Simulated scan of single mutants.
Amino acid sequence: MSLAAHNKIDVTVLLAADVVAAIEILPRVRPPLARLFTGKKASSLLKVLPRLFALCAAAQQTALLSAVETARDEVITRTTKQHRIALIVIERIADLLRGLFVGHFTHYIGSAAATRSLMRGMSALLGSAQPAWDSAQCEATARIVAALNALGMPNEGDAERSDGPLALRIAALDEIDLKSIPAEHSFLSVADDLNVIKRLLVDGATFCCCPDLDGHVPETGPWARQMTRDRLSPSPSGAAERLRARVAEALRLCAWLKAGAQIDAAEHGIIERYKLGPGRAAAAVECARGRLYHAVELDPQGRISRFEFLAPTEWNFHPRGPLVRSLQGAVLTARRRRDAVDAVIASLDPCVGFTLNFREVGDA
C-alpha cells in the first residue's frame, strides 16, 4: 500500500551501551482517502484503488466493495463470495512470496532456478485469476509448491531440508537474533472487528493513525494468524519464527487452492461484513500483512459521505506496537546492529519503505 512522497516510516533506535533504550517511530503519511472519497459514487472509486495502492489492491477493492454493498443491503451470491476469497488468497500468496525472494533468498547460490520457477508460477497464478477455478490455476499453484519445496520449504508436518535456502536463511537469522527482554504478545483477529470498527467511527483519523484496543496494540500478519489459529506459545518470537510463519501460510493457501478453493474450507474471517445502521457499514479483509478495515457512510443518493480505513502497518509500527516490543531492551553489538534490526522490521513487512537510524544516548 504505497502512495505519494513521504510515504515511509522513520525508525530511530536509541542505544545506551549497546542496549536498546527506546525506539522512536515517525509513522508514514497516510493517503487522504477520506477527503478524496467524500462525495463520490462508490462505483467510481473501485477502479481508482489499484492506482492508489501498489500492494494489496485486491484486498482494498474487496474491503470497499463489501462495505458499500452492506451499507446498501445488497446480498452477494455464494459464487461471488468464493471468487473474492480466491482473489484475496492469490494476492496474499504473491505478497508473502515476493518478500521471500526479494529479502531472503537472493544471495543463496543454487536457488536461482527454483526462484525463477517460483516467479513464473506466481505470474501465471496472478494472470489466471478467474471467477471459476480452472486447470491453469491448479497448474500454476502446483508449480509454486514444487518451487517452494525445491527451496527447502516443507509441506505441513515435514521437516525443513537442512541444506536448503530456507534452513540456511533461518540459521542466518538465528545468528543475528536479538537478545530481547521477553514481551507480552497479543494478536489482532476477527474477534476484535466490532471494537476496531466502533473506534474507527467514533475517533476517526485519530484512531487510524495510532490505533489501540483498551491500551493494547496487537500484532497482525502471518505470525499472528498462526499463533491465533493454532493456539501456539509465542516464544520464541524473532524474525526466524515470522519467516517460518510466512512460508507455512503460503503453502497452506496453495493447498486450499489446489483442493478447489472451496468456500467451506476457507480461512475463518478472511472477508467479514458488518451492517452498522441505515447507509452505514464496514468490512474487514485478512490480507498478507494483516487485517484491513474499511468503514463507510452513504448519503441518500448513494454517495460516500464518510470513509475511514485502517491498514495493518498502523498496528505493527505503532509507537507501542510489535516492533517496539521486539526491540526494547535488546542487546545490540556494533557489528550486527543494523542487520538485526533490519531483520525484525522486514519480518513485520511494512507496506511502505522505511529509514533506520541509530543514536547513542545516556545510560538505559
Rank of each mutant, 00 (worst) to 15 (best):
I9K: 00
L14D: 07
L15Q: 08
A16T: 07
A17H: 14
A22M: 02
I23P: 01
A34E: 09
K40E: 12
A42N: 06
S43L: 06
S44C: 08
L49I: 11
R51S: 12
L52M: 13
F53D: 06
F53H: 04
A54T: 08
C56F: 05
L64T: 07
L65H: 04
S66W: 00
V68S: 00
A71V: 15
D73F: 13
D73N: 13
E74S: 13
V75T: 15
T77G: 15
T80L: 14
R84S: 04
L87N: 03
L87K: 12
I88P: 00
I88W: 03
V89P: 00
G99W: 04
L100H: 01
V102F: 06
H104V: 10
F105I: 04
T106S: 12
Y108I: 15
I109R: 15
R120T: 13
A124G: 10
G127M: 09
W133K: 09
D134I: 12
D134L: 13
D134H: 15
A136M: 15
Q137K: 08
R143P: 01
I144Y: 06
V145I: 14
V145Y: 08
N149M: 10
A150L: 04
A150W: 00
L151P: 03
L151W: 03
P154E: 09
E156A: 13
A159L: 15
A159E: 10
S162E: 14
P165F: 01
L166H: 08
L166A: 09
A167T: 11
I170H: 00
L173A: 02
D174M: 08
D174L: 05
E175K: 12
I176V: 15
D177K: 07
K179W: 01
I181S: 05
F187W: 06
V190A: 08
D193V: 09
D193K: 09
N195G: 15
I197G: 02
D203C: 10
D203P: 05
G204V: 10
A205F: 12
T206V: 15
C210D: 12
L213N: 04
D214A: 14
D214K: 11
P222V: 05
A224I: 03
R225A: 11
M227H: 04
T228F: 00
R229S: 12
D230R: 11
D230C: 09
S235G: 13
E241L: 03
R242D: 00
L243K: 01
R246S: 01
A250M: 07
A255V: 06
A261S: 14
A261N: 08
Q262G: 15
D264R: 12
E267N: 11
K275N: 12
L276K: 07
L276H: 06
G277T: 07
P278T: 14
G279Q: 02
A281K: 04
A281P: 02
A282D: 01
A282C: 09
A283E: 05
A284Y: 01
E286P: 03
R289G: 02
G290E: 00
L298Y: 05
L298K: 05
P300Y: 02
G302L: 05
R303S: 11
F309W: 03
F309L: 13
T313S: 04
H318W: 11
L327N: 09
L332W: 02
R336S: 12
R338I: 06
D342C: 15
A343D: 10
V344C: 05
A346P: 06
S347K: 00
S347D: 01
L348C: 03
G353C: 09
G353P: 01
T355C: 00
A364C: 09
